[in-house]
Nucleic acid binder design. Sequence first.
DNA 1: GTATCGTGTACGGTATTATCACACGATGTT
DNA 2: AACATCGTGTGATAATACCGTACACGATAC
Lengths: 242, 242
Amino acid sequence: MIQSVERAVRILQCFEDQDQLGITQIAKKAELTKSTAFGLVSTLVETGLLEQDPGTSQYRLGLELFRLGNRVDADGRQRIISELTVLCETLGETVNYMRPEGSDIVYLVKKETSHSMRICTTIGQRLPMYCTAGGKAIMAYLPEKQREEILQSFRFSAFTENTLVTAEDLRRELVTARTEGCAYDREELELGLTCIAAPILNRFGYPIAAVSCSGPTTRMTPEKLRQCQAALTACAARFRDL
Amino acid sequence: MIQSVERAVRILQCFEDQDQLGITQIAKKAELTKSTAFGLVSTLVETGLLEQDPGTSQYRLGLELFRLGNRVDADGRQRIISELTVLCETLGETVNYMRPEGSDIVYLVKKETSHSMRICTTIGQRLPMYCTAGGKAIMAYLPEKQREEILQSFRFSAFTENTLVTAEDLRRELVTARTEGCAYDREELELGLTCIAAPILNRFGYPIAAVSCSGPTTRMTPEKLRQCQAALTACAARFRDL
DNA sequence: GTATCGTGTACGGTATTATCACACGATGTT
DNA sequence: AACATCGTGTGATAATACCGTACACGATAC
């Protein structure tokens, strides 16, 4: 673990909730000396990961960071995007492409339906696996050892009355998810929001991503869910050897 | 300048043209010892900026980098996107939002027209200011000192026979750009491609971004260009105090 | 007008820190 | 089966980054 690098990243992460920060605020948020922070920030500015506003002399995230971020999983995202467009049109709901990170999932691509009432997911958002269809779909297909590690690591929080908040409840659901090839989120994250997701497996059967469909519960009838299941698993199958 | 941080960024930049790399390749590309590279890479993996493929044990850019990259100029991009949608529809050509970095511009947002023959720009791409309409629009409104610095820093390369390859030619064009409020790219980057761009100024009159319209020269008639000029400058004006 | 607080920036001594050469085990190749 | 190459450790050396301190500047308050 190289200290300076870890600290530099911590500085970048300070900007997740604020987009302009002064040196003093950065030092405080990252728990660093002002002079230490200054050295790190200067380096980050030099490399383009941060930039300094000429007017306010405050710092913000830089364009080099944008460029690098755009390269993350560029081919996977490129390949999925046309599939999602088709899925979105045929299902008439918002569809997403997400990937696991630790015990969370991160949204990488979305395609929103044009319904007035629709689900709006946020690109780059991180959510716990246990309360999302995509997360459960991925968990279901993980090797048992890894799945148990993740199950143990959760610090459950009941977002709604439906949220599964015990490892046992989750294990039970994951069994059915494996038999169906799909996992569900039945208003477990937000009331009125139902999701269904299928895992994308690599050639070794390891889940590397998921595609999901999110809609208002009122529109997600049993029949619609069957349609989603068929479409999502078919889509996921086309990406088997990503 | 903190050495480790600068080296860590260099490692991330190794992935601009390749998306999977082993430790040895990383060390070679970044000109580092293998063990040094290993320490840096381990730290980057720990922080999520890199991730290791469980199968191949190779490294690639991580999701935390994606998340951070998505936060760059998030509000500016959010605000411009609906404007670009309208612009794209009224003009019937691909429109872009870009920002300066050093003597280059970087594409941040695009909206593509649905014409079969259309210009496809690449988000995150970096191009020299001197051969793009957006770059020239921004240069035209920079304080003279900074503009001259940039003009001197160019290492000109003639992409087409129209490319301006001397500081004098550029200076002359920038004068007219200031009077018009718009800059042009008349097949200077690629034959058959014409662009026009207007700078977005902050409340101090400093150019912080540009909006551009790119189309095939055959469709970019004088009349169309006048229409573009009006629409682009109007759009840019709405963003004056970003 | 003066004083105080905040800011961003700069320097130099100290010891923590990262670096490098070397080595190990595992894969896969000739 | 020997070999090459990969990713991964280790530990001694010295280069490195950290911290305390200090300064210039601007804003606010008195």
